[in-house]
Design a protein around this nucleic acid. Structure first.
Lengths: 255, 255
DNA sequence: ACCTTACTGTGGTCAGACCACATGCCGACA
DNA sequence: TGTCGGCATGTGGTCTGACCACAGTAAGGT
């Protein structure tokens, strides 16, 4: 087709043939089977050599496609033999999103304030949903996290871990896996790339106490099913944790 | 752990040596330089062969790391020679997020309602920001998109393209690139994976008219800087476009 | 002065080999 | 009879070296 430059009467613009690298073709084949439901979480892909033979490509091309799927958080690979070995489909969007957001933070494509702002909106939604329809038994992990924050002599890193557990648990309560992925990514990438800076608040015993009290208020509001109050408590909490970022709260900031 | 079942007196758990694949090591090296600011958008990486030599690894390992960076939307590769050739750092989180969200949608790790719900929260924030501090000249693209929606005999696909342009443009007005990426990803992946189904609304001329009127209302509210009204108009719009999804609206934001 | 040609360096692809690892079979030994 | 050790097998992980298509660029011929 469009190879011949001979003729002269073409009026319609030539549609440029876009080069498709073979690993992208492999990716498409796998994506098709995922979209059609033939491949589900827990399924294993054929071995790299076999898959390469089946698709008529080389092993490196298959492997590059694997790396992309891994970067999307839908594949893990195990060496060895036996039923555990091979490439397995998983659903781990959190890790994948962390890498994405983290790298873009490093590139300054996102500012820290941008990320915090988006997180704010996401978490408001999560808290609201949690207050509306959270099952009683699902609250246990959150209660435990908050309780541990009260333990005396808590290490700063331990507090941060509990804080993460609390907020990710909050997202989990919402029942929306996308929110969980988002919260996981934000916590991890902000922690890795923005280092301290943001979490200086928790440096003092008073800060820890205040933040913990916020957590308790949020949790209490969710237990009572009071969405409005829960969101308000969240706003207070985030305003305390990120003093530099006013936006994202909606109305309380009349500029 | 439990690898060595021999001894009996170890009280500290063995820290399992985690295997680091060499492409991950390469990735770390590049990530470091990104995080430290040595590598910025627009910079080029050394050639694959050279980079392999510099890091003491093979070219395939370097290439696998490249594929991951590409999947994160921070790298593109051009063949040929000259100043345009080679691997260039970019910031294209939208495409990367699209692949991620799309694949997870295909895997049913996310439900369509989950994605729409998150989008709702994100777009509320975007619209609010836009109403607060959008520059007058930035509104032009949106005005044009809306105007074109009024053209008679509009193809369905054309309407969808304009619709996408409008909503992504809305996110752009917010000044938060993360919101832009998110909106791009949602539009594209929902369109690819959920196919029609969701957009049946626009099937009728009446539907198109109603949705276009919504757009005009949103735009008008932003022009007047009335954030509250803009968000309300957005809610109306999304409620109309996705009748099945009630959540995400929360309360009309009283406080 | 212009066009053509060959060169160079880029990413893209391939084939084939070897390694480390994990399992499971099976024979040797107690 | 039971257990332990080692081999066979198959997995992903890695490397080497080669070739291709492509896009500039410089040298050469007209």
């Amino acid at each position: 087709m469009g190879n011949a430059t001979s003729g002269g009467g073409e009026r319609a613009a030539w549609r440029p043939v876009q080069r498709t690298r073979t690993f992208e073709a492999v990716l498409d084949r796998i994506d098709e089977r995922i979209a059609s439901g033939e491949l589900r979480v827990g399924d294993r892909l054929p071995g790299e050599r076999q898959l390469a033979a089946l698709l008529g490509v080389s092993r490196p091309s298959v492997r590059e496609a694997m790396r992309v799927l891994e970067a999307r958080g839908v594949l893990t690979a195990q060496t060895g033999s036996g039923p555990e070995a091979g490439a397995t489909l998983v659903a781990d969007p959190g890790r994948a999103l962390s890498g994405l957001v983290g790298t873009h933070l490093g590139l300054s494509a996102f500012a820290l304030a941008d990320v915090v702002e988006a997180r704010w909106a996401i978490e408001r939604l999560a808290v609201e949903n949690a207050a509306r329809h959270a099952a009683e038994e699902d609250l246990a992990p959150l209660r435990e996290a908050v309780a541990r924050m009260r333990e005396p002599g808590l290490e700063l890193s331990a507090f941060h871990a509990l804080d993460t557990a609390f907020h990710v648990g909050l997202a989990r309560l919402s029942g929306n896996p996308l929110l969980v992925a988002f919260m996981t990514a934000i916590r991890e990438s902000v922690h890795r790339y923005a280092a301290r800076a943001v979490e200086e608040m928790a440096d003092t015993a008073d800060g820890v106490r205040a933040l913990t009290a916020d957590h308790e208020r949020i949790l209490a509001a969710i237990e009572e099913g009071d969405a409005e109050c829960a969101v308000a408590a969240l706003d207070t909490h985030l305003k305390r944790a990120y003093p530099g970022v006013d936006r994202g709260t909606g109305s309380p900031a009349p500029e």
